[in-house]
Design a protein around this nucleic acid. Structure first.
Lengths: 300, 300
DNA sequence: ATAATTGTTTATTTAAATAAAAAACTATTG
DNA sequence: CAATAGTTTTTTATTTAAATAAACAATTAT
């Protein structure tokens, strides 16, 4: 088989449902109407109609389509399990790289990895081509891919790049009028930070997700498709690294929460200088934490 | 045939050359040595050896490999034309989009385009997957790609993003010591600008390339792999747009040269404020030119 | 008539098949 | 026992054919 027939199978089963909403003897809508309802092309509808016709569930001759009998459970086609989407792949791939400290310059085996992540090989290929634009992987001279990997340089450059973008975002942000929705969003975030701080001893692990939400919110101030794309990858990398780095985690997260709160105050001040200082201070801590977590991994 | 055999054909012909450097009766090096010399795997070497053996050019039995006769022109395998590389594809694709003003939301036909650019369909697929990270193309719900296209928004966001990166680069640049090689590079660029200014009436079209070199040089100051990747795409887009925009070209380029010279002076001043002002002024002009060239295209 | 519907053909995408190449492993020879 | 050859396994790039979409032509019903 070339393309998968999940589409046909889904359409076939939905068609059975449609038949069962009618009484025996009733006629079915036109092919175009069915195609529209099922969200597939007429080709698929006709294939499905042929299927139910072959099973003697309907009579089908030209425009005459009438239900002959009720469809049973046994008539349904089994669903073949769907493969993971490219978004799920992104998460599991980065998780694999970061969690297992896959070393730099590792040769990536498409066949094996596509099995591991249960995606089609060409989906992985496509995904890697995208990552190559971020310099995370590279095409080898004669076919194949290598993981450029999570080196110290990579972490430094990633952090620097993140800082540049975020500092620009806050320059825009402080200028926003007081009735801009961003302030409401920040207020909510502030409250969430305070809540977490109150129960930090038991729930410190919730911080990783809050950190992600915080930086994402700030970066929306620089509404730019390029920033947006980067932000996704950056936050994934920071997110996982902070999650796997267990050393001193409670204290580290408590400190970060306090930095975030100072950061929010800085933004509220309306003074770009003050905001920038608070931001820089936090971004610098983040960078150091990232580097330290690398070191911990590499020498453990 | 699955993979192309260009590799084998090249190895075969090179092997003929190697045979001809020896006298009849001489023996050939080991398979590993040959593989190393030809830059291919032993599998290919053995296939090539089998080939020359079948043509009775060598005697081959285990370790015994001896030249039987000189190879002639007729023995050589014809080269099949190679497909374009992914770098060449990048250039021709963007040239196609920008030169022919392919409208936003155009559905891209992989089969047709891969023929047009003479690459394998999956090479194009992989290339588009990379571009998707820059938001230039997008995957459609049910297969296929669409060109998100060169809209006004895209141009604005691209220019803004470029400005952010470049302004950060110059912040680093002005701090560089006087013996840093960057100053020598800028001096050379300055001279090239002055030269072009002197013969602007006839050679104004050379500016596009000089502009590219200038901005690339400045951005090397922010030595960062992410910046580097972006820089490539950004400069391609600006390059082509300026090249196709013929309105007022001579004057426009003359003005830009003068801005570049002021920009260089600003950098030399060592004062971040002055440098930034000169840079911003030029970046703003660039942005407006880009937007105007869009408008010209869309309404012509 | 003509709008709606079906029948048929063509085009396109993409999963699987396949051949080329690389790499790993084993056996042999000097 | 080190170098070399023989063999097998693995992996990738390209081709192919199935699945789907879309376009076009023919037919039917109002």
């Amino acid at each position: 088989m070339a393309r998968t027939d999940v589409r046909f199978r889904a359409a076939f089963n939905s068609l059975l449902d449609i038949c069962n909403t009618r009484k025996v003897g009733d006629s079915l809508p036109s092919e175009v109407a069915l195609a529209d309802e099922l969200g597939v092309s007429r080709t698929v509808v006709r294939a499905a109609l042929q299927g139910v016709h072959d099973k003697a569930i309907i009579r089908w001759d030209g425009r005459d389509k009438a239900v002959l009998r009720r469809a049973t459970r046994a008539d349904r086609l089994s669903k073949r399990e769907e493969l993971a989407s490219i978004e799920e792949l992104e998460v599991s791939f980065l998780e694999w790289v970061l969690r297992f400290d896959v070393p730099p310059e590792t040769v990536l085996n498409i066949t094996q990895l596509s099995k591991q992540f249960s995606v089609a090989p060409h989906t992985l290929q496509e995904f890697l081509a995208g990552l190559a634009r971020f310099g995370l992987v590279e095409r080898r001279e004669r076919g194949g891919w290598i993981l450029r990997g999570f080196t110290r340089d990579f972490a430094v450059e990633l952090s620097d790049f993140r800082s540049v973008l975020e500092l620009h975002a806050i320059k825009q942000l402080v200028r926003r009028p007081k009735d801009d929705p961003i302030w409401e969003a920040l207020k909510t975030l502030e409250q969430q930070h305070l809540d977490l701080l109150a129960r930090i001893d038991t729930n410190f692990q919730d911080f990783s997700r809050l950190d992600e939400a915080f930086h994402t919110t700030i970066n929306t101030a620089f509404s730019n498709r390029f920033v947006f794309e980067f932000q996704r990858v950056i936050s994934l990398i920071f997110h996982y690294h902070f999650q796997w780095n267990k050393s001193d985690e409670r204290q580290r997260n408590e400190d970060a929460i306090k930095e975030h709160l100072a950061y929010i105050d800085g933004l509220r001040s309306g003074d770009p200088k003050i905001a920038e200082r608070a931001a820089l201070s936090h971004l610098e801590t983040s960078k150091l934490t990232l580097l330290r977590s690398l070191k911990d991994h590499n020498f453990s």
